[in-house]
Design a binder for these strands. Structure first.
Lengths: 274, 274
DNA sequence: TTGCTCCTCACGTCACGTGAGGTGGC
DNA sequence: TTGCTCCTCACGTCACGTGAGGTGGC
């Protein structure tokens, strides 16, 4: 018979742990003194303790450990739990490796630029959005070419929405479709979300902006004339963190007051692992 | 100005999170209505939220995030935090990879043997132990050769301890030193721990059983004549889990009643990554 | 009036670590 | 008597999720 302290010593666990395992019924002492409450363990219980430690060290929770030690658990169930654990571990390893990549990317940036990045990139999921939209084309994907096309396009969109009495359910979205031709031409979509049952009206097209499992996003503050550095930062981030762009880039117009210098927009780029 | 719900939507976070960040002072709403307590956020606060999300997604705790956003934090401090995080992540990846190896090993065992292993192996750290000991040699590391040598050796040790009035501070330890010669001969040490200041006496040698950062251990129940399957299980485990033996194997005699069938011993083998 | 959004507590999570306050045998 | 070991609460951990119970504007 061992006292709790001796048993803890042999098992390389804390006394508190043994008390905890007693409390949850995972490992009951062989004997408990009725008057003092002292716990006493038998040497043979070391095997039981070791089984618990071994399973816990595979990453199972104590409740799962308890069920795995149950005599009535089948081999198939044990296999199932181990396979699930394996899958969880594999997912966790991938996630942590990605986190490490991002930490290292940030260390490189801090070394080369001497400060933390000011443009923060965040990965989000984008849901499918039902929109009404107008489209036009621009000669290239630079603010100089986009600006003169998108501004009248948005104004026109606003007028037609009012004329057709359509109530948008969200804010303006622009997305940019690379022309199938080999030149730089892009098709610009100016769109607003509408309720699911909406119909085309007033010369406006109904469309679905597709969902994206992962999109890298960045907030741009200020005039869209100055958007290029933000676009570049987003592109570099995607590259440095081991992703690639897989769909149309989008802009979400979050706040557009009179003074364009105070605009807040979010650039979104669907991505996939490179 | 956004209500908390709108802001949460744009930021892809939960309303509860925003309330939490407000509560801990990480991200205060731009305005709080005095009478209703409603929180209102500005579009420009999306950048602040994104910085928080980005840092949190690197694995930093919210308290650390807060300190990293502090204007007074130096670039050197930021670098330090990122490097520490990198080191933690690397360690965590190694630990999880080892865990995955163990889970996979167990899955293979369950497939080949049709049940969970009954001999559980646990990795422990072994501290250095000051002992008094007697030694002898055996022809090989099999129970048939060890048994007839170690039994009288232990009896002799007990007598000399009593004669020299030495009080052991722990239980009997045996460890086995491969002879430097090429044959199977092993040097058997029968030792008991003593207080640090002890001196050699009564023909007993003082020695230190070295510490080991990692040792694979397994509990053997029953007579030492039957120890071979347990020794084999330990050796296989060490092999299958990507370790190798790096020091003397030991036996710790945990409980040795009259009836040897009820003995409980722990086999210990110092290991290192293979 | 019903729904919707917002609010403030406050408990639960997971496996213990860490006191606080007290007892019993050498 | 002092140290040592043991005991039982009970709080703290970390970042929220999840009700409970209630309010205010459309």
């Amino acid at each position: 018979m061992f006292s709790i302290g001796e048993f803890a010593n042999h098992g390389r666990v804390s006394v508190r742990m043994l008390r905890h395992y007693d409390a949850i019924g995972l490992l009951r002492p062989a004997r408990v003194d009725a008057s003092s409450g002292y716990r006493y363990y038998e040497a043979s219980q070391l095997s039981a303790l070791n089984r618990i430690i071994a399973l816990r060290d595979l990453g199972f929770g104590l409740e799962q450990v308890q069920s795995m030690l149950d005599e009535n658990v089948s081999v198939a169930q044990l296999q199932g739990m181990l396979r699930l654990r394996r899958a969880d571990l594999e997912a966790s390893l991938v996630a942590e490796a990605a986190q490490l990549t991002r930490v290292e990317a940030r260390l490189r940036i801090i070394e080369s630029e001497g400060r933390m990045p000011t443009h923060e990139v965040v990965i989000k999921r984008l849901d499918l959005i039902r929109v009404v939209e107008l489209t036009d084309v621009a000669a290239s994907f630079t603010p100089e070419d986009i600006g003169p096309v998108i501004k009248p396009l948005c104004a026109e969109l606003g007028q037609r929405l009012a004329a057709a009495a359509i109530e948008p359910t969200g804010r303006l979205i622009a997305y940019y479709e690379q022309s199938p031709r080999e030149d730089d031409e892009v098709v610009i979509h100016a769109a607003v979300p509408v309720a699911d049952g909406s119909h085309a009206a007033g010369g406006l097209a109904i469309a679905d902006v597709p969902a994206a499992e992962q999109a890298a996003t960045i907030v741009h503050r200020g005039s869209m004339d100055q958007v290029l550095p933000t676009v570049d930062a987003l592109a570099r981030w995607i590259d440095v963190n081991g992703y690639r762009a897989v769909g149309f880039p989008r802009e979400l117009y979050i706040e557009c007051p009179e003074d364009e210098a105070h605009w807040v927009t979010e650039l979104q780029q669907p991505i996939a692992p490179a």
